[in-house]
Design a protein around this nucleic acid. Sequence first.
DNA 1: GTAACTGCAAAATATTTGCATCCTT
DNA 2: AAGGATGCAAATATTTTGCAGTTAC
Lengths: 141, 141
Amino acid sequence: MIDSKVTELLKKTQLSVTDGRRRILELFLQHEGALSHGDIEKKAGEKFDRVTVYRTLQAFLEKGLIHSIPSSDNSIRYALCKEECSEGHHRDDHVHFICNQCGNATCLEELVVPSIKLPRGYTAQQVEVLVSGICKSCSSR
Amino acid sequence: MIDSKVTELLKKTQLSVTDGRRRILELFLQHEGALSHGDIEKKAGEKFDRVTVYRTLQAFLEKGLIHSIPSSDNSIRYALCKEECSEGHHRDDHVHFICNQCGNATCLEELVVPSIKLPRGYTAQQVEVLVSGICKSCSSR
DNA sequence: GTAACTGCAAAATATTTGCATCCTT
DNA sequence: AAGGATGCAAATATTTTGCAGTTAC
């Protein structure tokens, strides 16, 4: 059951279990894709305050429950991290896919991020790959 | 001389040549790195309106003079496109580097973006690579 | 009971729009 | 002269902060 998983996740990350956090985490588990702040407000109904969403996302981020997906349009989206992340040693090498048709963003965690050979003098600490195009569900229509 | 190059660029993209546009384009040519909306306001002095900056960046984007660099922190940065872009057929495969120390963002245009093998059903239209770490000037201090 | 979380109000920022005026072509 | 660009004012939208009341542990 999803509800117990939600609670378990919150406990594991030492966040106190409140209705708001449960609800938002639930959204992430159900949606299977990335959510923006706005998405969450909409999907959550008029249940709670906009400020709570900000603070909740912030808390989730800090605890490594979610990570943010960079974007070019001032609407950062967040997605659940896989198990390996929550532990503290974040896996930084994500491939993210953003569909130009439906706008959904998903993590392609199964893909390996190629290593980038940087020019002399540069040191890489993290590599993000952002692919945009047509996603699976859109192309099968 | 930089001034004639600025004018030339504007003309080539069918933008009328005004002081504001000249000034902003100049900043991009001088800075050799990416600039955020805020950077531009600061660097330009109190010369012109905040709104003009928005509209100018918008115009430059549409004409393909600059491109935006995605970010995870609601501060999108813009950088000059190379020649190949301005023509209309944008080169989409950039590698961008963001320094965690000085915060500067630069385009590593000389790097080739590796091709990403997507899962069945996905079609890539654009690939962005965002590397963060320590840049050349910061590591030599 | 205490510390942490939430909602509300309000401040601080950021972005967009309309319109009159000025400048480029 | 005509169309586009700019500045200003103002409307919106977004994000942050403080504080008092509530809830989780």
